[in-house]
Amino acid sequence: MKLGTMFQDVSSSFLRKPVTEKYPFERRTPPTRLRGTLVWDAETCVGCGLCATDCPANALEVFVLDRKEKRFALSYHPDRCTFCAQCVSSCRHGSLAMSNEVWELAALDRTSFTIHFGDETDVELALAGKTASNAEASSE
């Protein structure tokens, strides 16, 4: 039975700098594996749509414009994404990765919450509905 068992901690803190981090004024470097926003590599994608099927949050839509020409587009909704990295694991071609640099994704309007990957004309075509999205998960 003692009194004031935390005296050591308290007294040593008296002259010590607080450990609280003053985010957003001070940012520490994120770990390399930090799971931030998704990035897509159009070169390797084969349009299998597995990423969209396995996404638990329906955050991905894969559009196949022309399988032979390898013309695909991908829509990504960071506001729905839970950053679980299942899509990264599901993709057998290594086309998806998560950035450890872009992770402050809060925004005041919704425009930044839909990210289209792919060739610009392809994206426009895909959005115009000229092609069927093969991702079952994209039905809302």
């Binding site: 308290v10 803190s13 609280t20």
Partner: peptide, 9 residues
């Protein structure tokens, strides 16, 4: 108090 608890306060 915050200082003693290693916080900013």
């Amino acid at each position: 108090l915050a200082q003693l608890q290693n916080r900013i306060g």
